[in-house]
């Protein structure tokens, strides 16, 4: 008898919670725009901006779901499970489409080329450039800069054998050109050590002096916190990483009824955000001002209000 009861309870629980689970998988509503959140503040802030604007100017609701790694998020957009994500033309080219800056034909910009390829291969495309260029940049803490008199990446060549370089894992993969091995070859850098470290621990390692030189995203607020100085990419090794909203091309048709103006609403963000503004916003959420950290939502709201986009 007791077993039967236990079984019934289990069955009841299963039935009760199954809808909760399956609800996670349904993104086909034509009144909900779905975004999978990013792992970094920059993406989260942009996603909040999209939510605020779209919910203000259209009849859609925007659902921001749990974060996932960018390639994963991109796959969801391609599959139509998610509608858009914040991304970068350089990321789309190298990480998502597995192409390389050298594949870009002469006379065509990376942005135009990648858009053409993405639409053809995956039915995705980038909207207008937001204005940020979150490219990779080689950076070092102030005391290293002073000690070795560094200004450009080329300046590193002379002293590299005394310095430890470390960066996150994806900078070390062998495919693609904006990576560690091509970089040290291009600039002829013979670092004492070149180590892979988790991005979450990179800044601690720099603060504790374990790492002398690293690669960072230009718009990361943590650069300011760690007092990192960006070295000029004097021979233009790194491609641009222009921030832009990446959409599944079907969404405008899909939401035509509820949001005929969706594209215009999203394009309002085009050209609005400078690198400095983005650094300030990510700094406010990650590090905080006077110990008070802000949220991506608050930063997005403040920014849009200042620009007069949010009433």
């Amino acid at each position: 008898m007791k077993k039967l009861k236990l079984f019934t309870v289990l069955l009841a629980m299963l039935i009760l919670v199954t809808p909760v689970l399956t609800a996670c998988g349904s993104g086909d509503n034509d009144d909900t725009l779905v975004i999978y959140d990013g792992q970094f503040s920059e993406m989260r802030i942009i996603h909040q901006m999209v939510k605020l604007l779209v919910e203000q100017d259209t009849d859609l609701t925007v659902e921001i779901r749990d974060e996932m790694a960018p390639p994963a998020s991109y796959d969801q957009v391609v599959a139509g499970e998610a509608d858009l994500t914040n991304s970068y033309d350089g990321t789309l080219l190298t990480t998502f489409l597995h192409l390389d800056p050298v594949d870009v034909p002469e006379g065509m910009t990376l942005y135009d080329f990648v858009n053409e390829q993405a639409l053809e291969q995956d039915n995705t495309r980038l909207l207008g450039k937001l204005g940020t260029n979150n490219t990779y940049a080689v950076a070092a803490p102030q005391h290293i800069i002073d000690q070795y008199q560094l200004e450009t990446i080329s300046d590193l060549a002379e002293v590299a054998d005394e310095l430890v370089f470390a960066a996150e894992h994806d900078f070390f993969t062998e495919e693609g050109s904006a990576k560690y091995n091509p970089m040290v070859e291009f600039y002829d850098l013979d670092f004492k050590e070149g180590r892979q470290i988790d991005i979450s621990l990179k800044y601690s390692a720099i603060n504790s002096g374990e790492v002398d030189v690293t690669v960072v995203y230009a718009t990361d607020g943590l650069n300011k916190e760690a007092e990192l100085v960006i070295l000029e990419d004097d021979r233009n090794f790194f491609p641009e990483y222009n921030g832009a909203l990446l959409v599944n091309d079907d969404i405008f048709e899909k939401f035509e009824e509820k949001a005929p103006n969706l594209e215009e609403v999203l394009e309002q963000l085009t050209g609005q955000i400078s690198d400095e503004e983005m650094v300030d916003m990510t700094y406010a959420t990650d590090v905080g001002i006077d110990g008070e950290t802000s949220t991506p939502e608050a930063e997005a709201r403040k920014f849009l209000e200042a620009k007069g986009l949010l009433k």
Binding site: Y36, Q39, D66, E67, M68, A69, A72, I199, S200, L201, Y203, S204, L222, D286, V287
Partner: peptide, 20 residues
Amino acid sequence: GAFVGGGGLGSVIYESIRVS
């Protein structure tokens, strides 16, 4: 799970390590 889109406490832990 946080690495593969599972959400949960892993994401907080990971984020708090990142921003120390």
